[in-house]
């Protein structure tokens, strides 16, 4: 968490964008937005714009990378250089390596990897515009893209974060709140199983604040989960030729 903000982030129970503490930003999820990918998904979450593509299962080379018992799931979270205020140097940095890892571990819980020995399933997540909460948006998009690719899965994983701003626990931090707030708690959650598959935290929470924050994030993830399923079903219940991400 960064420095202190000179102006309050919550005034009379309302946040900078007018949200109440327990309110999500507007979210749009669109499945099947890329033509070449086996599956894809675009997520617009506040000012975040994230696109995920899935390729595979496909042949994995070189051979020593193969696992004879299951598919190898490979995830790459990447930020476009233009997605943030100060241009980001292209390519993986330590932050994106870590995020790719925790997202992969969250998804491995749901994908039936054992159906596809020796193969690879690639999940690419590109953050096109970042406004805090990109890892949750990327996980949400990746999970829909996997389903869209016809990859067998136990369920979808929904991502959602909670945090602490001006001493108040809030759902779904936006950029200013992330920069000047006191804590962030990103969550990956499977509502039908009540399972936490991604959990990170940084900042300063008391035990009670943490409890509230985790419960907020779970509630948020349940709403995201409903939107994910709705997005998949919408792909075949509307007559659009192809979905568009922009």
């Amino acid at each position: 968490m960064g420095g202190k903000s000179s102006t309050p982030l919550i005034v009379k129970g309302k946040r900078l964008d007018g949200r109440k503490p327990e309110e999500l930003r507007p979210i749009k999820i669109e499945a099947g937005v890329l033509n070449r990918a086996d599956g894809s998904c675009y997520v617009e979450w506040g000012k975040n714009k994230v696109i995920a593509a899935v390729y595979g299962p496909r042949e994995l080379h070189p051979k020593h990378l193969q696992d004879n018992t299951q598919a190898v799931l490979r995830c790459r979270y990447n930020m476009a250089p233009f997605s943030v205020d100060d241009r980001k140097r292209p390519g993986p940095d330590r932050r994106s390596v870590e995020i790719s890892k925790v997202i992969r571990e969250a998804l491995e819980r749901v994908v039936f990897l054992n159906y596809f020995p020796t193969s690879a399933i690639d999940v690419f997540m590109e953050v096109l515009q970042a406004d805090a909460g990109t890892r949750c948006a990327a996980l949400t998009a990746a999970s829909v893209a996997l389903a869209d690719a016809g990859v067998p899965m136990r369920d979808l994983v929904a991502g959602c974060a909670a945090g602490k701003v001006d001493g108040t626990v809030v759902l779904d931090l936006m950029q200013e709140e992330d920069n000047y707030g006191e804590g962030d708690l990103p969550l990956g959650y499977i509502p039908s199983k009540d399972e936490i598959v991604l959990l990170q935290m940084d900042g300063d929470f008391t035990k009670d604040e943490f409890k509230t924050a985790l419960n907020y994030a779970i509630k948020g993830a349940k709403k995201i989960y409903a939107l994910q399923k709705e997005a998949l079903k919408r792909k075949y219940t509307t007559n659009k030729e192809t979905a568009k991400w922009i």
Partner: peptide, 8 residues
Amino acid sequence: HLHAMQKG
């Protein structure tokens, strides 16, 4: 207070 968490 809690300051960091990481699920792996």
